[in-house]
């Protein structure tokens, strides 16, 4: 019965991190809820293998922007080009099929399931065997389950959550839950990973761990990452480029240094003296 043996996690082929062509192009996105304009005519682009941050004060439209990118919200105006495909609107599960994964600001794990099941769910969209072959648990359905289990174990090793594999996620502390959520997103082998405040509410140590994981993912898997984060130290250290939003509009974008020294950004954060 040892047709599938446990392998130690072979590190994914280390890709030299080299910023490539534009992978995501956001053009003139406007999103309104009734009379409220959440995003107002924002454009930016993200390049392959890049860590790209979206910052801005509360209510600036950062999370809405992520929701637009992965199809949860449908913008009134504008279009998004991901991986060569242009679209105006898209269903959330289609964006997952195209290789966009995300984590949520408020942890959105499946509370009734174990860590392993949660991470496996990240790969469900790749499982093609139908429910009948799964019901008899023989042949294709079973083989597929084992193949995906092995890939999931790689992710579990990568994020160092081996010891909590079989624990129901509801029992885990907050920091670990965030990490499991990252594992679930990563298990989908995304081209683009959207992280919505992955370090919110963490202590310094947990933050450092999370930063290391973000960098490692970017390094080893070559995943393009869009990051929303309020901790400016983290943002400035990790990001290749930053876009700043305020009241739904874009203030500026550029490298962390450029953004730091931009007067409009300083005004938005600190207020303007009359």
């Amino acid at each position: 019965m040892a047709e599938i043996e446990i392998q130690t996690a072979a590190a994914p082929a280390g890709r030299a991190r080299q910023i490539g062509d534009i992978i995501l192009e956001v053009e003139d996105i406007t999103l309104t809820f009734g009379g409220l304009t959440a995003i107002d005519n924002v454009s930016f682009n993200v390049r392959e293998h890049e860590i790209f941050s979206i910052i801005g004060p509360n209510g600036a439209g950062k999370s809405s922007m992520l929701n637009v990118i992965n199809g949860v919200y449908h913008p009134q105006k504008g279009q998004i080009t991901f991986n060569g495909k242009t679209r105006k609107q898209m269903k959330a599960h289609h964006s997952a099929a195209e290789g966009i994964a995300r984590t949520f600001q408020n942890i959105a794990l499946f509370k009734g399931m174990t860590v392993l099941d949660n991470v496996m769910t990240g790969r469900n969209k790749m499982m093609k065997s139908n429910f009948l072959t799964q019901a008899i648990y023989w042949g294709k359905g079973r083989r597929e389950e084992m193949e995906h289990r092995r890939k999931v174990e790689d992710v579990i090793d990568f994020l160092e959550i081996q010891s909590i594999r079989k624990t129901p996620v509801g029992r885990l502390p907050y920091g670990l839950q965030k990490r499991v959520e990252l594992a679930r997103a990563l298990a989908a082998e995304p081209k683009l990973l959207l992280l919505d405040e992955p370090m919110a509410g963490m202590n310094v140590e947990e933050k450092e761990d999370m930063c290391r994981f973000v960098l490692d993912i970017n390094d080893e898997y070559g995943t393009t990452i869009i990051l929303i984060e309020h901790d400016m130290g983290v943002v400035m250290d990790l990001s290749d480029r930053v876009v700043v939003l305020n009241y739904g509009g874009k203030i500026t974008d550029g490298t962390p240094d450029e953004v730091c020294n931009n007067q409009a950004v300083i005004d938005a954060y600190l207020g303007v003296t009359e």
């Binding site: 599960h93 949520f104 794990l109 009734g112 099941d117 790969r123 499982m127 389950e145």
Partner: peptide
Amino acid sequence: CSVGRDFMAVRDMDIAAEVIG
């Protein structure tokens, strides 16, 4: 198997389930 995980994902957090695909 994945069918059951699909079901439980929809039960526990439907938005996240949809975003996962």
